[in-house]
Design a protein around this nucleic acid. Structure first.
Lengths: 235, 235
DNA sequence: TGTACATCAGTGAACGCGCGTTCACTGATGTAC
DNA sequence: TGTACATCAGTGAACGCGCGTTCACTGATGTAC
């Protein structure tokens, strides 16, 4: 395949059509999950023939990968755009958690795509890992100045060892929360705990498991976040 | 369809074949997820023709439903079989959490089937709701005697209202943790928090999201569980 | 104890469906001289 | 400014696949007298 131009009207049109294809794909995803994503149906929705899609995506998996990348990027953008109340890390944590949940609740199928059951046969390329990290980056500075509860000590120890071993991660943490190694371990531990706490409430909520139960996802998330903030003695 | 006998050699054989079909189905599920579950392939694996399966399951959805029911029942059994260390609710909570995680890690595809992305088009029958509750029942007495942290107050309030409104749930909670209405609200709140905490750590672990990270699912779960126990001042 | 009958497991052929993907092509659009 | 050429979007036909499910049937197994 020859080198494709990255500017000019043709490239613009190409990008636009790619976006339309992904939009249609997301609509199908929202209706019937990954299994419902069919190139033929997308083509029909856009008023073009099936094979035409192969001008834009090499295969179904290629399209799926693009959707996953986009979802990570969008989630990261949503979290990054969370307001900073300016009243300390605790309030900031709530703002981040709310932003993340709002994105997930607003686009549940995309959350599932990214954090849910892994798509069988699809293995994420290394670039995706970076996108995944971008979602969590804003949480690092929140916890950097915290004091982790004794109960988290074993996790902190594992994370500390990881940071000592993996330069790339250490650099990433340092970029997000520039401080000494101990603060880095605290920051990353808090972030990982926050990640799992968020997934616990949001994942169940989005899967519809709270239906018929007395609590709301929002209240539950707020409480869990507050407890986590307590565990790190956040101001 | 005529009434089927529930005893006798034919009924026994029938049950056995049903079990073999479900086993084969689970094997496929483990390999390629829900999408890979195909009646034809199951039949081939059992050395019989495709249509023969319709003697045992009315449809693909029927089989899927049976698998889901079984998974709930198995998970409930695994949690119920958790040892009671006898040294108070905190140790008991750890035992329950570990039992739940062990089951999930041992049979990740079944955990996904039950707590993961909902299968598109499949809606659980009401009986399944009861099975789902059975998994959580052992957690109720653990939290009944706890003192919930102030941060959980909004959740407790919602749960209290729910218990006042929904007799079936109130009865279920009372059966698990026989005590007054306030202890019931505490027990159910703790159980719901535990549920989401467990899903947060286990769900991510099983989806493979911890790969390449420094912490183990076990350590993370223990820490999260300990923090939750702290939040309820468990002994 | 033997026989007639009902029940039920299982078969093979067939149907219709939707899918991913390939291929040879047509026509429009942009580009180089 | 005009023309020849290259590039690229899109088409229609076709392939092969695997699937869920139905149907009329055959043969074995259990049951009632």
């Amino acid at each position: 395949m020859a080198e494709a131009r990255t500017t000019g009207p043709r490239a613009r049109y190409r990008e636009q059509t790619r976006a339309e294809i992904k939009d249609a794909a997301l609509r199908q995803l929202a209706e019937g999950g990954t299994a419902a994503l069919a190139l033929v149906k997308i083509a029909k929705e856009l008023g073009m023939s099936g094979p035409a899609l192969y001008r834009y995506f090499a295969s179904r998996d290629d399209l799926l990968g693009a959707l996953i990348d986009d979802a990570y990027a969008d989630a990261a953008a949503a979290v990054a755009a969370a307001p900073d109340p300016g009243t300390g890390p605790r309030a900031r944590l709530h703002a981040l958690a709310t932003a993340y949940r709002d994105w997930a609740v607003g686009e549940p199928h995309r959350y599932q795509l990214v954090q849910g059951t892994p798509t069988p046969g699809y293995t994420a390329p290394p670039e995706t890992l970076a996108s995944a990290r971008a979602v969590l980056a804003p949480f690092l500075p929140v916890f950097a100045t915290g004091t982790p509860a004794p109960a988290t000590a074993p996790v902190v120890a594992q994370i500390r060892a990881w940071l000592a071993r993996d330069e790339a991660v250490a650099a990433w943490v340092h970029a997000g929360a520039p401080a000494g190694p101990e603060a880095a371990a605290t920051a990353l531990t808090g972030t990982v705990l926050a990640w799992s706490t968020l997934h616990g409430t949001i994942g169940l909520e989005i899967s519809g498991h709270y239906t018929g139960m007395g609590h709301t996802g929002e209240t539950l998330l707020t409480a869990q976040t507050e407890l986590l903030a307590d565990s790190f003695a956040l101001a």
